[in-house]
Design a protein around this nucleic acid. Structure first.
Lengths: 115, 115
DNA sequence: CTGAATCCTGTTAGATACTG
DNA sequence: CAGTATCTAACAGGATTCAG
């Protein structure tokens, strides 16, 4: 499996490449919440209680930069910003779904209650 | 989504829990290579060219600790150690498969040749 | 309300050398 | 052949402060 480059970074396999887009602790939880609805920044923040302000803003920025979500700004006071998933972002949903199912299965095996 | 604990660490959702088992750069590539055959340490090392010695040993250790792979030591000189996937490890394969498919799709969209 | 900038910390991962 | 130990660089992530 030869290496390849994208955006000045070297990747060694499709797994690594995919995880560079949707990996990390927060990107998939965010995508999952946007799967069927548009949410404001504050709604996302409230829905993902343990995420910090910084993590949410940086992850949203990353997801927008890679085209997985869309950022809509409304010129108003106070500011209003809505986030929605793009067609490209929807392509990642099967991965998220599979991973959630696996995570729940693991939790069940360990006797952890499903949230 | 309430938090929960496992092994002294706090998790906030099934995604995070799943990724603690099979996340990171190397665990899924390793599991994928063991999906249908037993491999020696050196064979894995050769099959995943860019992984460092340290990363391979630590990741194998992690995967064994979480019961996803089995480590078989043969008392011989020179040493011979074989790794194989467990039934529990096989439960993670759908995730790996979905992620590989998504990664390849992404690569295609970016005009990157499939390895 | 949303976001940017700064500082600080713990973890991850690479290079290298050593062991049975 | 397989694994361990140490040192260090890079990065992820948290807390805090300031801004439009």
């Amino acid at each position: 499996m030869p290496e390849f480059q994208h955006d000045g970074k070297v990747y060694y396999n499709p797994i690594e490449f995919a995880l560079s887009h949707i990996g990390g602790t927060w990107k998939m939880p965010i995508l999952w919440r946007l799967r069927d609805k548009t949410l404001r920044y504050g709604e996302l923040k409230k829905d993902i209680p343990h995420i910090t302000h910084k993590m949410l803003t940086t992850q949203l920025k990353d997801l927008e930069a890679s085209g997985l979500i869309h950022r809509q700004v409304y010129a108003a006071v106070p500011p209003k910003v809505e986030y929605s998933i793009t067609e490209k972002g929807k392509e990642a949903l099967p991965v998220v779904e599979t991973l959630i199912r696996y995570g729940k299965k693991l939790m069940k095996e360990y006797g952890i209650e499903h949230p």
